[in-house]
Design a binder for these strands. Structure first.
Lengths: 225, 225
DNA sequence: AGGGGGCCTGAGCCGGCGCTGAGCCAAACG
DNA sequence: CGTTTGGCTCAGCGCCGGCTCAGGCCCCCT
């Protein structure tokens, strides 16, 4: 579990880091607002622990900026303020939880776990053509209920064809997208890999989802053959 | 938005009901634990506000019962207790938030809105893949009834894989989340630790929950192998 | 019918991916 | 101060996936 701590009091930051590392988290620390926002943008964290009063850029602004960019990483806010409206503000701004200093480490841990447990991870849609399905996140392909094992190259070829299902896709396009953009080898690889694909997703099932469009390229049947 | 309030002090219950109705919620009230559990089971609420000290059945038991039935309705806990471990307990038991009496109505509203915005939590407090379970708070892993001892690193690795169960997880992701963010060592450590994990959670049980996705990384079977 | 070009495929080489056992080192422990 | 434990490195090995190539098939054109 990878965390980002944004906290300007270095003693507090260090204490938090030590405690959380001891609990098995991977922890990075930013000592001011701009650094924190930069790190949060560049990397993927499972949660962010963020002070409100920060030099350069307040915690409020950081959350605001992240949410505006559709970044829904869970944020747990720390604050020395104790006005109740501050808390309401933070939660309405999109923070996931709120702790008032001083707080106990045990409570921080429990709330952090609660926040992590909820963790939002919108997975990309599963591609489907008839009973042929491909799940990019799970890297899994199945024909009906039958799981099919594909090599990485076969997988990206099928993924590309499925994303353009129904289109006749030229070999140049395939080379460009599935192989390297400036791939210099023999275009025959495509024929070879189309062959591999057919032997795994079509022939055993008596289907022909992968169709040859002579002179133009290949087409994947939208109904899966 | 339909709410259930489980609260035995009738003055408190009535005050909450009035305030929340005025805010536009539809509110039902149960004045003891068993009634509350019954209503929660029979109906579908967007959230439940639940006291801890209840006659007949404590708030803890209610949450426990609901979660055991895979009912992940958001629960906001109210309590007169103020020991920090109570709070930690409530959150680990599967409560979504926690307020200590006396609390202000404004804060309750803000936290309620935050809880509602998050919606139903996708995951339970204890991570489970089939009969393989991992309790982050207790740092305990078991296969069915058999307790399994893991080193900290092994535990972190398994926790990360379980949080992303079903996904093919790249070695880069694993390095970033389980090892340090800018870990410079050999990525071979992952293979080594995956090996350790398999020897503890899979091989002795004749399972294969930890799957190699050649060229892409690893995947934990959602059904535990 | 014949020829030609596009397409398919089986054989086979090669690089490197993934797994493992051995072993080193530091920290924790008694 | 020795022992144990956990984290990690390293080298070697087996085998898989990527790719090439040559031969043959099939479609289409004339």
């Amino acid at each position: 579990m990878r965390l980002l701590i944004i906290e300007d009091e270095s003693r507090m930051a260090t204490a938090l880091q030590r405690g959380l590392v001891a609990e098995g988290f991977t922890v990075e620390v930013a000592l001011n607002g701009p650094d924190g926002l930069h790190l949060a943008r560049e990397n993927t964290y499972d949660a962010i622990v963020c002070d409100i009063m920060l030099p350069g850029l307040s915690g409020y602004r950081i959350i605001e900026a992240l949410r505006a960019e559709q970044n829904w990483v869970p944020v747990l806010v720390l604050s020395a303020k104790d006005g109740e409206y501050d808390e309401a503000d933070a939660l309405d701004l999109g923070a996931d939880d709120y702790l008032i200093k001083p707080f106990s480490f045990v409570v921080l841990l429990a709330r952090l776990r609660a926040v992590l447990r909820r963790g939002v991870r919108p997975r990309p849609a599963i591609l489907a053509c008839g009973d042929l399905t491909l799940d990019p996140a799970a890297r899994a392909v199945r024909r009906g209920d039958a799981e099919i094992e594909l090599t990485p190259r076969e997988f990206s070829l099928l993924e590309y064809l499925m994303r353009r299902a129904g289109d006749a896709v030229s070999k140049a396009d395939i080379l460009h997208h599935v192989w390297d953009a400036h791939y210099e080898g023999d275009a025959n690889v495509i024929e070879v890999y189309v062959g591999y694909l057919r032997r795994k997703i079509d022939i055993p099932f008596g289907r022909h989802a992968v169709q040859t469009v002579r002179g133009a390229g290949y087409r994947l049947a939208t109904d899966g053959g």
